[in-house]
Design a protein around this nucleic acid. Structure first.
Length: 373
DNA sequence: AAGCCGTGGTT
DNA sequence: TAACCAAGGCT
């Protein structure tokens, strides 16, 4: 269902809305490192990192990444492991693979020249409609609306547009709205201002309507229903996962890691040897084990032996880490272990100095399990 | 087009 | 604690 205010009202108000938004943005904009850059490469990297990831998390990663890979050629020439290592902890490592693949394609097929059109960007792996519009407007001055979750929230509230904005029909309506609002002379500023408004003022919960430059024009605020928008569909129930992992040292104080097999989550990254001990929907009557126990230790030992040919005796519990992912709730128990047979070797296994983890392509959980403890 | 990706932060 | 959210894209 889509109910909204008459759209004819909006184009007339567009110039005033534009002016108020841009004036607010000029005053309130955060000093983010990529906002000091105008080259498409720096903007591109920031936009890929910012997909489903908060600004606060991205900033240090972006700085390190641009020091390691200052331009598209250095990124294209880098080993995938180095790129994944720089990404480790940021999540959704597929973004890093696609960024690396896109850099290679730019160097190999375009002589290292970055695209200068929306279609050119859109054709690269990892660049969808939002990211293409963001790069296009910010780095190239193209007048294309960049519509992310923030912008969806602002626009559904401004116009009381009902329905889930992630659905195609609603998204099209919002895009049409944004197109009628965008400042064609300063599209990059406009897009960033709209996203900034969503990130700083028009918050999902407890928005700061009194300080909003659009507050007097907002239909949802006028009717006192701001927090009823956007009308997102309820999320699916989460999946509960319990996992066991072992910390096994060799004689030189190095810890055993294994390469995640293709087809598994986090494939290609390094993780502590382990296995899934429980996997189920959390809306079912929970059978998920609630605490570490000898039965789980035996199961972990047997499955490491049968699945990975790693033969150990399980020692004491070292720590428990909870990991909340979109619709996964993961609990990992890390135990000590002693090898009782020769440890496998080969490409899937490696021993690393636990003091030298930075730069390794670790999974997020492994990074947390190994840090300071 | 609907589900998946199994991240980190806030409330 | 657990739900919800974030500068989404891919299949």
């Amino acid at each position: 269902m889509i109910d909204s205010v008459p759209e004819s009202a909006l184009p007339a108000a567009a110039p005033a809305l534009r002016q108020r938004l841009l004036a607010w943005y000029e005053r309130e904009r955060r000093d983010l490192p990529w906002r000091r850059r105008s080259d498409a490469y720096a903007i591109w990297v920031s936009e890929i990192m910012l997909q489903q990831t908060t600004v606060q998390t991205v900033v240090p990663y972006w700085r390190r990444f641009l020091e390691l890979f200052p331009n598209v050629r250095s990124l294209a020439n880098a080993d995938l492991d180095a790129v994944l290592g720089a990404w480790s902890g940021l999540g959704y490592s597929r973004r890093a693979r696609m960024l690396h693949a896109a850099a290679k394609r730019i160097v190999n097929e375009r002589g290292g020249r970055l695209p200068q059109t929306l279609e050119g960007w859109r054709a690269l792996p990892g660049v969808g409609s939002y990211t293409a519009a963001a790069i296009g407007s910010i780095a190239l001055g193209l007048p294309s609306p960049a519509i992310d979750g923030n912008v969806q929230r602002v626009l559904t509230r401004l116009t009381k547009t009902g329905g889930d904005p992630r659905r195609t029909a609603v998204a099209r309506r919002l895009e049409s709205l944004a197109r009628s609002l965008i400042d064609e002379d300063r599209p990059g500023e406009f897009n960033q201002a709209l996203m900034e408004l969503g990130a700083m003022v028009c918050l999902p919960r407890r928005p700061s309507c009194p300080s909003c430059p659009w507050g007097t024009s907002c239909a949802a605020r006028r009717d006192g229903v701001v927090e009823d928008y956007p009308q997102l569909a309820p999320a699916r129930p989460a999946v509960t996962v319990v996992r066991g992992a072992v910390r096994l040292f060799n004689g030189r104080g190095r810890v055993l890691l294994t390469r995640v097999a293709p087809g598994e989550p986090n494939q290609g990254l390094l993780e502590l040897p382990g296995t899934v001990l429980y996997h189920g929907r959390s809306d079912h009557p929970a059978h998920a084990p609630r605490r570490w126990c000898p039965e789980l230790a035996l199961q972990l030992r047997d499955r490491l032996a049968s699945e990975k040919r790693l033969f150990v005796e399980i020692g004491s519990l070292l720590r428990r880490v909870r990991h909340g992912i979109t619709h996964h709730r993961i609990t990992v128990y890390l135990t000590q272990a002693e090898a009782v047979a020769r440890v496998p070797s080969g490409k899937a296994w490696c021993w690393v100095d636990p003091r030298r983890l930075s730069g390794l392509p670790l999974t997020g959980v492994t990074r947390r399990l190994l840090e300071s403890g």
